[in-house]
């Protein structure tokens, strides 16, 4: 099969007689596609697509108990946890091939109870999980303890 059309290093093949016309159209399409202006537009769309994908894979979910008093703090936060003592855990948990992990111990709640947990999922976290076949898991949480009772 001999190449019939070449355009910027791409070789296009004519494999059927009745594709003559369509090949010509395809060539025109490619010409349009590889036009610098169109390329720029495509890059923009591509970037938007990737951003949307990243945004969708980066989210947080919040949980809180309804029947407990959160531990208060004088902080300058401006998020939904303003006024509370917020602790953060940002680590990677490693799991062996034949072992399973135990729960992560939270030792700094003097009341012994959690009031609020915010779990964050990121694209990087998902990627890490995928490329390590689940052996490395990114943990990003914020939590607020129950206020110690007296």
């Amino acid at each position: 099969m001999k190449p019939s059309i070449s355009y910027r290093g791409f070789l296009l093949f004519e494999n059927q007689v009745n594709t003559h016309i369509s090949v010509s159209y395809f060539a025109l399409y490619l010409k349009w596609l590889l036009n610098p202006f169109i390329m720029k537009q495509l890059r923009v769309f591509f970037l938007i697509g990737i951003s949307v994908l990243l945004l969708h894979s980066c989210y947080s979910v919040q949980f809180k108990v309804s029947n407990g008093q959160a531990e208060p703090c004088d902080t300058e936060r401006e998020d939904w946890l303003s006024g509370y003592c917020v602790r953060e855990l940002d680590t990677v948990v490693k799991v062996g091939t034949i072992t399973k992990e135990n729960p992560i111990n939270i030792k700094d709640c003097e009341s012994g109870a959690l009031h609020t947990v915010e779990y964050r999922n990121t694209f990087g976290g998902i990627l890490l999980y995928l490329v390590t076949f689940g052996r490395k898991r990114q943990v990003k949480i914020k939590y607020v303890c129950i206020k110690e009772s007296n």
């Binding site: 208060p72 004088d74 206020k147 110690e148 009772s149 007296n150």
Partner: peptide, 9 residues
């Protein structure tokens, strides 16, 4: 003085 931890009942 932040009072919030003084919560005896």
């Amino acid at each position: 003085h932040f009072n919030s931890y003084m919560n005896i009942k």
